[in-house]
Simulated scan of single mutants.
Amino acid sequence: MAIVSGTPGVDGLGAAAGALREWQYDGAPAQLHPGDLGWFWRFGAEATAAAVRTWSRGGRILGVGLLDGTDLLRLTIAPDVRRDEELARRLVVDLAEPARGVLPAGKAYVEAPADALVQDLLAEAGWGTDVPWTPLRRDLTEPVEDPGVRIEVIGRERAGVRAAVQRASFDGSRFTEEYWHAMAGGSPYADARCLVAYDDRGDAVAAVTVWSAGPGRPGLLEPMGVHREHRGNGYGKAISVAAAAALRDLGSSSAVVCTPSSNAAAVATYASAGFRPRPEVRDRRRDVQEARRPA
């Protein structure tokens, strides 16, 4: 059967998120998570559908990509077909030709599992590698320690607090209460929680959103931030510990997160919260449009 690619439409987002959920397992290479789709949902269901690409054969979804910005496709593939040559070659063609509507001409980036054949074929086609990222993982077999600060699980009535901490944690963030409600309206948020940490004076000092992929599967932290006026006080560690505890309560087998390796402070914060670094990963990068098609 031929491989069919395209956008799923709003009605197909649930199927794409469901496929991503099924593909998560402990020991998997760093890959797109249903929580990544859920976090993107802050822009609304229609924008999310427009940013998602799927590859299917015989009615089964084999690959899901999220266009994160204009030139980065975050792609993952069903574990049993990561070395499928027909799928890998179709992916390379779709990524190489702007007319396919996946990536623009010129400089572009692809995030894909390290063990996928598409990595090899992109290298043959002249795609290089970009800056390293560090995935980190915390096992959730054992109970998680107390974070040492007050933690609030944010609901609809307190969305403004969550949004304010997000804006105070990331320069240029435009996250608003309306964005939170859009995100919470997406299907992935049924397995998610937003947490806010408070200091002794009652000020909101850090926040995180955690995404479960279902019982017995890895859960994701995306995003985590500490208010710029409260950094250096251990709140990043505290909210990361609280995130791990929330995911364990949701049935997750482990908690995972990924951060640029150049952000040494973030890597150290997660490590202090019991997350163990895994081998670095790099996106594939195309610097020119005239990439070679693999033989």
Results as ranks from 00 to 15, higher is better:
50 A>N: 13
79 P>F: 10
71 D>L: 00
51 A>P: 13
65 G>D: 11
48 T>D: 01
52 V>S: 05
66 L>K: 06
58 G>N: 08
76 T>Y: 00
49 A>Y: 07
49 A>S: 12
75 L>K: 07
45 A>Q: 12
44 G>H: 03
54 T>E: 15
72 L>I: 06
61 I>P: 05
46 E>I: 04
58 G>V: 09
44 G>F: 01
58 G>C: 09
63 G>M: 12
74 R>F: 04
73 L>F: 05
49 A>F: 07
44 G>N: 01
42 R>E: 02
46 E>C: 10
52 V>C: 12
78 A>M: 04
45 A>R: 11
46 E>V: 12
65 G>P: 13
53 R>W: 13
60 R>C: 04
73 L>I: 08
58 G>T: 06
55 W>V: 10
50 A>P: 11
45 A>K: 04
74 R>N: 04
79 P>E: 05
79 P>K: 08
52 V>K: 06
50 A>R: 13
74 R>C: 09
78 A>C: 06
48 T>P: 02
79 P>Y: 08
49 A>L: 07
76 T>M: 01
75 L>Y: 07
43 F>P: 00
61 I>V: 15
73 L>Y: 08
65 G>M: 10
78 A>L: 08
68 D>Q: 11
61 I>L: 14
43 F>Y: 13
52 V>Y: 07
62 L>D: 14
70 T>W: 06
74 R>A: 09
66 L>H: 03
74 R>W: 13
54 T>A: 14
67 L>I: 05
77 I>H: 05
63 G>D: 06
72 L>G: 00
77 I>V: 15
62 L>A: 14
58 G>K: 06
68 D>P: 00
66 L>P: 05
77 I>N: 07
46 E>T: 12
41 W>L: 02
69 G>R: 01
76 T>S: 04
72 L>N: 02
52 V>E: 03
50 A>F: 05
63 G>C: 13
58 G>Q: 06
72 L>W: 03
49 A>I: 10
64 V>S: 13
47 A>N: 14
